[in-house]
């Protein structure tokens, strides 16, 4: 039932994109907002972002506390089948995520250093642009790329659009695969896409994101990258930082200190 509905809506959703043209109109009205990434318009506003200090992270070998914390907080199911996996924050080998920066002389152990990756909450998120229902959008107040699972019709356009693979699709009902249910956070259903929301529910309560809080090395630093006085800005001012595939113009807001 669900899947058929989703599939049906996928088609009608695609039609809606073509017909309504709401987004298109918005772009036409204000080309600056629709096209440029971190142009002057965006600078003044709040933009939440995160720094991953890979040196600190590497210190705790084999640590996955951030991932566990996130999974527990958000009712993330665990699947053996890699195609079914749901990932909000997860690890990738270092050279996978920064392949363009590679110097070929890097030590193999560093190359394969597991590095946490998550949604980049881009300044100019391609996933938002392609969503036919407005189920995903960029919050104007804090720059989080947010999701409304009530609205998601499972068309998976956003997954195709995201260059970071930060979005997962629920191919099966996740609930039986959740080890420990957290009643304060909803699960998802078969047929919707999900991803990291920077723990918007925790932020609303004045808490930090679960991963940040869980990191024993304090390798994850969270804050407003548009605020020059924030901790993240202070750190970025002092060190070189890399962003994943920034050349695409998406304006990613996860910074990696090397």
């Amino acid at each position: 039932m669900k899947i058929t509905r989703k599939e049906f809506l996928k088609i009608s959703g695609a039609c809606l994109v073509a017909l309504s043209g709401k987004e298109v109109l918005a772009v036409l009205d204000n080309p600056a907002e629709g096209q440029s990434s971190s142009s002057s318009a965006g600078k003044a506003r709040k933009q939440l972002g995160m720094i991953v200090d890979t040196r600190k992270c590497a210190k705790a070998e084999g640590c996955t506390k951030c991932i566990q914390a996130c999974n527990a907080a958000h009712n993330i199911p665990s699947f053996q089948d890699p195609d079914h996996q749901i990932k909000w924050i997860w690890e990738k080998p270092f050279d996978d995520i920064f392949s363009s920066y590679e110097t070929q002389y890097l030590d193999a152990s560093l190359k394969e250093e597991p590095t946490p990756v998550l949604c980049n909450h881009c300044d100019n998120p391609p996933c938002v642009r392609v969503c036919p229902t407005g189920a995903t959008w960029k919050r104007p107040e804090d720059g989080i790329v947010m999701m409304d699972w009530h609205r998601c019709i499972g068309c998976r356009y956003c997954m195709a659009a995201c260059p970071y693979g930060a979005r997962s699709f629920n191919w099966v009902d996740p609930r039986p695969h959740i080890e420990r249910l957290n009643p304060d956070f909803p699960t998802r259903t078969k047929g919707v896409v999900e991803k990291c929301t920077f723990c918007s529910e925790r932020l609303a309560n004045g808490q930090l994101p679960a991963c940040v809080e869980a990191c024993p090395e304090k390798a994850l630093v969270f804050g407003d990258v548009n605020d020059p006085k924030s901790e993240v800005r202070q750190m970025l001012a002092k060190s070189y930082a890399l962003r994943r595939r920034a050349e695409l113009g998406t304006g990613p807001n996860i910074y990696y200190l090397i």
Partner: peptide, 17 residues
């Protein structure tokens, strides 16, 4: 409505736990 497909009843979670 499909509320309960995602939202959990705390009482039930407690019971099943």
């Amino acid at each position: 409505p499909y509320c309960w497909n995602c939202h959990l009843d705390p009482a039930q979670v407690k019971r099943s736990a």
